[in-house]
Design a protein around this nucleic acid. Structure first.
Lengths: 199, 199, 199, 199
DNA sequence: AATGAATGAGATTTCATTCAT
DNA sequence: TATGAATGAAATCTCATTCAT
């Protein structure tokens, strides 16, 4: 009856979360069932509820993890010399599994946030962090004269963030889109947006 | 003796579609149930199936109507003198009910298109039309020297379209966003993106 | 508001019944819907209920008609010189549409009679008539020395009737059955059954 | 830790199948509902689908079980000294519950096989087995000089099988039939059919 | 006579969740 | 910790029948 190894517990939680991530990526938050997740994680439903109180809790945890990964990723990117190029490059080639999952599910999260306050909370919290990272980057760029000082850093950051969201729609709207060209053009768009304007 | 008014039939179909649109806007395509729609339309479930063969058919019709409205709207906007300003203005204040529904549901449609081929088809078809409208606008602007001739019209059109999609995320990511400022900034972004570059 | 032409009424009833017969033959009593029948008869459901009080009434009428046709058919056959050959020949090649419908639906009627008292009543009534026809035939044959006098005419008639029912199962149990050979063999079976036994 | 007794699973499946058998016997394959079966088996609908994927799967399993019982029964009967007498005796007094269910439902299966390919497949497969058993019996009888060598064993077997089917109609056509006399007469019919003909 | 709109009960199936072991 | 049995509400869809015109 004694509690066992909280480390193991945490590891199992991660495993389940990974399995859930794969299911959600495949079928979406609503489309994936507890059954799917149990099958993918190779555990029984009863057991799953030992680790998560509800499906919503899993969804929340996945969102948390995915968005947190986004934040870390953005932080790494913002630290690079040519941040804009790195940003676009990342949209082009997501590096690891968790980040990819986050990518695929982002639109799902946005939609879910529109109806589910819990998801809205998580999304907004992480959005604040992302926006702050971008805004700081912009502020520094302005200080160095590399970014248009006329832009409100917070507002511009919010816009850039959402432009990124919009790019998930590219392949959905046109599955034959030439992603390479589009991302080159996106890079141009961002550059021109941020570059200081000549008098 | 005579068949009764197919006009009435069509009118009822519209009523149901409007009711469904309200439900979908409130709860999403998956979240809204046939029961919800019937209650909203004040008809019985059996009757609903007199007008639509399945829930999917309703979803499809709603998407069709909403996206078609988008296409018409964009066509009207592209005809205006300052198209970019008109575009941004429209994002700001959707005019009528149907357009508003289309707005709210757009992200839902994108997500749905990711898993449901029927929705994907509808979305892609209308996206082609939208992209063509924008690309034509860009081509004309290039001919007049108002738009950077270095941009590939189709690619740029696709990007602009998706930037528009991304803007739906603004309020979701930050419900306290100052929409006025953001749209002003969006306008700047689009202007700078399209304006011919000085040597 | 005055009642019109009862002849027309009767004609329409027949039309509907024919349509229903085709539907029932295709899909069975339970499988065919009022909708199917209306489509086949090219009338509206409201109108159909002008002629029949319920689906059960249609089923009953169809059964009545089909079984009555059976009775008439058997009466004609029993009047022929070589009645047994004629009987088997008829199983082989049903002559007209109504008789064919009766054939196809007979198992359906038997099953339905097992649960639905109305159908049971109709079936039993007509079975009595059929049995009487066959029993009379047997009695006459016995009188002429052509049929084994040791057989109880009523019992033997009942058996022959049910042997006929069983033959509907031939193609169901084995769709590749050689019907010609089987019916030849059936003829042998009936002949031997009825033929007077040598001492 | 260890998977729980697949024996229990199988036992529950049987219970449900028995309940379903009773419902089907009472109301037919189409008439019996999942609700009926759940009530009879005292389980919830959700639980039933833990054991069977669909109503059709239950119907199939019932048919399989019932027909398989028929096959075994016929095999036992064919092994007896006076097989024909044993055959008729069995029609008279079905021994256990499962066999009785099979009896009642046989006509239902035939009808269902007429429209449902899955049922048709099951029926045909078992019919082949039954026909083979009977044909072998006939061949042996012919070898021993007890059965008319002029009969094609397969064809005759098919006929005998269907004569058996027809006997289910006896009580349906005439509920007051004297089953004893009828079965005596059936025995005569079969004997005369099979007995070698004197020159 | 005739239409087709409209109903509402009920059928099958799904699924998040809880229970017993 | 772990299983899988079990629940029950709810979702989509069907269909015989009735209503209004």
């Amino acid at each position: 009856m004694r509690t066992v190894d909280p480390v193991k517990h945490e590891a199992k939680r991660r495993e389940i979360l990974d399995a859930a991530g794969r299911c959600f990526a495949r079928k979406g938050f609503q489309g994936a069932t507890i059954s799917n997740i149990c099958a993918e994680a190779k555990i029984s439903p009863g057991h799953l509820y030992h680790y998560f109180a509800s499906k919503e809790a899993i969804v929340g945890a996945i969102a948390e993890v995915g968005l947190e990964a986004n934040v870390e990723l953005l932080a790494r990117i913002m630290a690079k010399p040519d941040a804009i190029a790195a940003l676009v490059a990342e949209v082009r080639h997501p590096k690891d599994q968790r980040e990819k999952t986050g990518q695929v599910l982002l639109l799902d999260m946005l939609v879910e946030a529109g109806r589910n306050p819990a998801m809205a909370g998580i999304l907004q919290e992480h959005s604040r962090k992302l926006q702050t990272l971008l805004a700081d980057f912009i502020r520094k760029g302005q200080a160095r004269g590399q970014i248009d000082p006329g832009l409100d850093p917070e507002v511009a950051a919010g816009i850039v963030l959402c432009v990124g969201d919009g790019m998930r729609a590219l392949a959905l709207r046109n599955p034959e889109v030439d992603m390479g060209k589009s991302l080159d053009t996106l890079k141009i768009l961002l550059s021109r947006f941020l570059t200081p304007q000549k008098p």
